[in-house]
């Protein structure tokens, strides 16, 4: 049996079905991300695993133990909250030591364990401070340390970085991943940021309307989105119908029964690589946006709008504007479910 196993889990708030027949397995030491838009049920699923929400149907196993009816405090599961949830009346040391104090461990052991995790999160010089005296990033590190010190079997993180500015967020993403790998702890991370999910995860569970619509490694998820929702949520895909593709390439035909196709915007190229087989077509550039290392262009191809991401080579900017010939490798046209 897997380390965490969720079987046919459903949860409703009144008449509103929030989680619909969810099943998945997580192996020990994995970092899983629950990714999806607001209201898709990802935080509720996390809270179910934590024991903070009671579900109506299904089973939840942790290390082969059925914890469906176990109290949150008895699950040995840690949780990091979006707004940190640090105790304002306690110092950083007291906050981190809280869980160990409840276990009535000897004082010197508590001190040793607290200092161990304090070093992990680089807060040695802040242990006598109160939470309000720390920055947002430092507070989230404290929250992380507080959860880690009790050595939970699983650490749940509910959008822990969303309240932080971009620079601190990127830094903490790296820190969390590094910590997870070093400690080998199983983590479930909730986010609505697909880039964050890609950076952090071993596997990503994409959720929509209370269901897991696709679970895959970041690379597979990006290369093979299962349906239109995933394709539109992950990266910058062009979603085209068979008619649209026929307008681009009149010779295009596909025997599969799907009616939608996804094309990554960076897989469309400007100059046709010599000797390669694929679809060649002409388009008219309508506008472009410089995003930094890439330029996002919007092309019109026989009334079909195509988003194309090109490498930002400043010397070639003028030629991009004048170039009309585009190229797609047939392998980059991915058939998806509606």
């Amino acid at each position: 049996m897997s380390f965490i196993s969720v079987e046919n889990l459903s949860l409703s708030f009144g008449n509103h079905e929030v989680l619909k027949d969810i099943s998945f397995q997580i192996e020990e030491g994995e970092l899983i991300t629950l990714l999806g838009p607001s209201g898709c049920g990802k935080s509720t699923l996390l809270r179910v695993i934590a024991g903070l929400e009671v579900f109506q149907e299904g089973n939840l196993f942790l290390e082969e133990d059925d914890i469906s009816n176990t109290l949150p405090r008895d699950r040995n599961v840690g949780m990091v909250f979006q707004n940190y949830a640090l105790f304002p009346n306690m110092t950083i040391f007291e906050n981190i030591a809280f869980g160990l104090t409840l276990k009535k461990l000897p004082k010197d052991e508590i001190h040793r364990e607290v200092m161990r995790v304090v070093r992990l999160v680089n807060l040695e010089d802040k242990i006598d401070h109160y939470p309000h005296q720390l920055s947002g990033g430092q507070q989230q590190r404290t929250s992380l340390a507080r959860s880690l010190v009790t050595k939970p079997k699983v650490l749940l993180l509910d959008e822990p970085l969303s309240a932080l500015d971009a620079k601190i967020r990127k830094q903490l993403q790296v820190d969390i991943r590094e910590l997870q790998k070093t400690l080998g702890i199983t983590m479930i991370f909730v986010t609505h940021d697909q880039e964050e999910a890609m950076i952090l995860s071993d596997r990503v569970f994409v959720m929509s309307e209370g269901k897991i619509v696709q679970s895959a490694t970041p690379a597979d998820l990006y290369a093979q989105p299962k349906n239109q929702f995933v394709a539109s949520f992950i990266g910058n895909y062009n979603i085209l119908s068979t008619d649209d593709l026929n307008k681009i390439d009149p010779a295009f035909s596909d025997q599969s029964l799907v009616s939608k196709y996804a094309i990554r915007s960076e897989s469309i190229q400007l100059a046709a690589p010599s000797g390669e087989t694929g679809i060649y077509f002409n388009g008219k550039i309508e506008n472009y946006t410089v995003l930094g290392s890439t330029i996002r262009c919007l092309y019109d191809v026989n009334d079909v709008k195509l988003s194309v991401d090109l490498i930002n080579n400043v010397q070639n900017l003028e030629s991009i504007k004048s170039q009309t010939q585009l190229f797609i490798d047939r392998n980059d046209i991915i058939a998806i479910d509606q």
């Binding site: 680089n122 109160y130 720390l134 920055s135 990033g137 790296v174 590094e178 910590l179």
Partner: peptide, 26 residues
């Protein structure tokens, strides 16, 4: 306690950029 924290919360310190964790530290 909270009597101070509630009033001083707005005076939060500027974010301090700390270099990423080193594996050696772990």
């Amino acid at each position: 306690g909270v009597s101070n924290s509630l009033f001083k919360r707005k005076k939060r310190k500027q974010e301090q950029v700390i270099p990423p964790l080193s594996l050696k530290q772990l």
